[in-house]
Amino acid sequence: MTERANQRLALKLAGVAVGMFGFGYALVPLYEVVCEYTGLGGRTGIVTAAEAAALDVNRGREVVVEFDTNINGTLPWSFTSLQRRITVHPGQVTEVYFVAENTSDRSVVGQAVPSVAPAKAAPYFNKTECFCFTQQTLAAGERRKMPVRFVVGADLPPGVNTVTLSYTFFEAPGAVAEIAPAARDNQGS
């Protein structure tokens, strides 16, 4: 009798262990949700162009937006922004340009990852267009000017007067071999 009870309990506890293994993986989407909600990790928001255009512009408040560009690891690109900083009003849709250049002799796929500091401003920093929404493929030696359209929400917490938008370009994982030729063809057409 004890032996059966032991086995039953052991199975239940093993079930808990398996469940906790699943919980570890469940932390991944859970973390996404928390980041979205709190701006943790500098996640920016996305709005449609129509929504952005409909916002009231608060001309009485000025916010400085700074741009920061980085290249990760061995990506053979140069990457800068045309403006270093601009002053905007909350609710005002603004367009800025970034320039990436492939300095190598091969086609490379890059993925830009944005981050906004301070984190508490991140949920109020909304983009309607960004080169980071998709992977960018640059042929050897190709230079590309890329727009970002953004709007700072009118409900940006008071006390935040400077917001930094930072991009880091990574070599897109696993994308080089398959996507690059197709993308080059598209550009040729």
Partner: peptide, 21 residues
């Protein structure tokens, strides 16, 4: 029982990040 499986999950994620894309 509650935490070791979470570690196992974390290191498995490391493994798949490195070798399985």
């Amino acid at each position: 029982i509650a935490t070791i499986p979470v570690l196992a999950g974390a290191v498995t994620m490391l493994l798949t990040d490195k070798y399985f894309g």
